[in-house]
Amino acid sequence: MTAHHRIDVSKVGDVTVVRFVDKTVLDESSIHELGQELFGLVDAQNGRKMVLNFSNVEFISSATLGKLIVLDRKVKTLNGRLRMCHIRPEILEVFRITKLDKLFDIRDGESEALAAF
C-alpha cells in the first residue's frame, strides 16, 4: 500500500473515494505532495472511477486548482471518470468564476457522486 499524507483513500464498491486531510493546502511542497498522491492513485488504478470529497476543505488557491485540472485530464486520458462533491459555497464560487464548473463533474454530496457512475 502506498502511504498517503494529504489524502484519505477508501473504496465504495468499485469507486475510489478520496478525502482531503488538510483544511488548507497552501505551501508549494504540500500542494506538490497532494498532486503526486492524487496522480499516483490514478496511475495505480488506471483511471477508473474516482470521487473527490471536499467536505474537509476550507480554502483553495489557484495552485491547487492547477493540480485538480491535471488530475481531471489524467483521469479522462485513461477513460476514467472523476466526480467532485461536498464543495463549500466559497470554493464552488472559485470554480464558477474560473468556469471550472464546466470542466469538472460536480455533485452535491458523496451519495449523488457515487450514484452518478
Partner: peptide
C-alpha cells in the same frame, strides 16, 4: 483569458482573474 473553452484545462493563469473577481 483562462475561461475560454480552449484554455479551461490549462493548469495555470487563474490568479489575476480570482483577485479581480
Amino acid at each position: 483569458d483562462c475561461t475560454l473553452e480552449e484554455r479551461l484545462d490549462v493548469p495555470s493563469g487563474r490568479g489575476v482573474m480570482l483577485m479581480r473577481s
